[in-house]
Simulated scan of single mutants.
Amino acid sequence: MSLQIPEKLSHVRKLIDQAKFNEALEIIENFENSESLSPEDQLSALLIKARIYTYTREYEKNVEVSSRAYEISQELGRASESVEALIGKAYIIFIDDLDKASTYVTEAERLLKSLPDDFSTDVLRRRLLSIKSWILLFKGNINGATESAQQCLKLIKEDKLSNKLELTATFLILGWINWNQGNQTKALDYAMKSLKHNIELNHDVAIAADYTLIARIYLGKGDYDQALQYCKQSLAIKGITSRT
């Protein structure tokens, strides 16, 4: 059974689903600074922050916060939260530590098997499949990456409460997988699906990531004008977000 979210943070989940990350972080940080928190409340706040940093692609912050959350979850004997923290720590793959990322995912999978099936474990399973697909892709295991990503997509579509952020993240990894396979048409289809939802969410960081993939696809097709256009759009967004 997962920890109950503190009442003062109940609105944060909705803000995250709407990609209003700065507002969500402000509420969490005010919560952390305004009162003496129990270890359980500290853990809840850290895990929510880690999730935000996943979506904003601030991976060093994600790993740091997830590491602190893992220590607290272990002290409290919270298996579900330990799994969530390990998933956050696995994003160290984007800081060039594939071996550690693989170790964290293996441990998360082991712990997840010990938990009863319910809504919270379904969410953890999707998140685990998502980062696992990236790790397998980085290892060059295209078939394994495809299987994990497709399974993640299936679980997301089966859950009516899942959010667009999960969906777009899965479309993006499927786009990169197909790009690596040379399936440019499928890669572009997934990238455009991700882009459509991210534009609806006004999720600038994810839009920039979509543009980067689309630029790569057009480059592979030999359409250099389109590739340059999307590359410039990606760089423009990254320039804006790095200053905010």
Rank of each mutant, 00 (worst) to 15 (best):
107 E>N: 06
74 Q>H: 14
65 V>D: 07
91 Y>T: 05
109 E>I: 09
62 N>K: 10
105 V>P: 02
46 L>V: 08
29 E>Y: 09
31 F>N: 05
106 T>D: 11
74 Q>E: 10
55 Y>C: 08
52 I>E: 07
43 L>V: 02
58 E>Q: 13
67 S>L: 04
88 G>L: 01
77 G>H: 07
98 L>N: 01
36 S>W: 04
77 G>S: 07
44 S>K: 00
33 N>Y: 07
45 A>Q: 09
88 G>A: 03
101 A>F: 01
88 G>P: 00
83 V>T: 03
36 S>M: 10
74 Q>V: 10
57 R>P: 05
85 A>V: 00
31 F>H: 07
73 S>L: 06
101 A>S: 11
28 I>Q: 08
69 A>M: 02
40 E>L: 06
46 L>M: 14
76 L>F: 05
103 T>I: 13
76 L>Y: 04
63 V>M: 08
30 N>T: 14
63 V>H: 04
43 L>F: 00
86 L>T: 03
29 E>R: 11
64 E>S: 15
38 S>Y: 01
40 E>Y: 08
34 S>F: 01
82 S>A: 08
48 I>Q: 00
93 I>H: 09
112 L>R: 06
82 S>W: 03
47 L>P: 03
41 D>A: 15
41 D>R: 11
94 F>Y: 05
76 L>S: 05
76 L>D: 09
24 A>C: 04
88 G>E: 00
100 K>C: 12
92 I>Q: 02
24 A>G: 03
96 D>W: 01
33 N>H: 10
78 R>L: 14
101 A>T: 05
94 F>L: 01
45 A>P: 07
62 N>G: 10
72 I>L: 08
101 A>Q: 03
29 E>G: 13
60 E>L: 15
90 A>W: 02
67 S>G: 07
29 E>V: 10
42 Q>N: 14
94 F>K: 02
110 R>K: 13
69 A>I: 01
88 G>N: 00
33 N>A: 13
47 L>N: 07
39 P>C: 02
110 R>P: 08
60 E>H: 12
108 A>H: 03
33 N>E: 12
98 L>C: 05
75 E>K: 13
72 I>Y: 04
62 N>S: 13
29 E>W: 06
87 I>Y: 04
74 Q>P: 08
69 A>Q: 03
34 S>E: 09
84 E>W: 09
43 L>P: 00
35 E>G: 15
92 I>G: 04
63 V>F: 00
90 A>P: 04
92 I>M: 00
69 A>V: 04
32 E>I: 06
75 E>Y: 08
112 L>M: 09
57 R>S: 11
86 L>A: 07
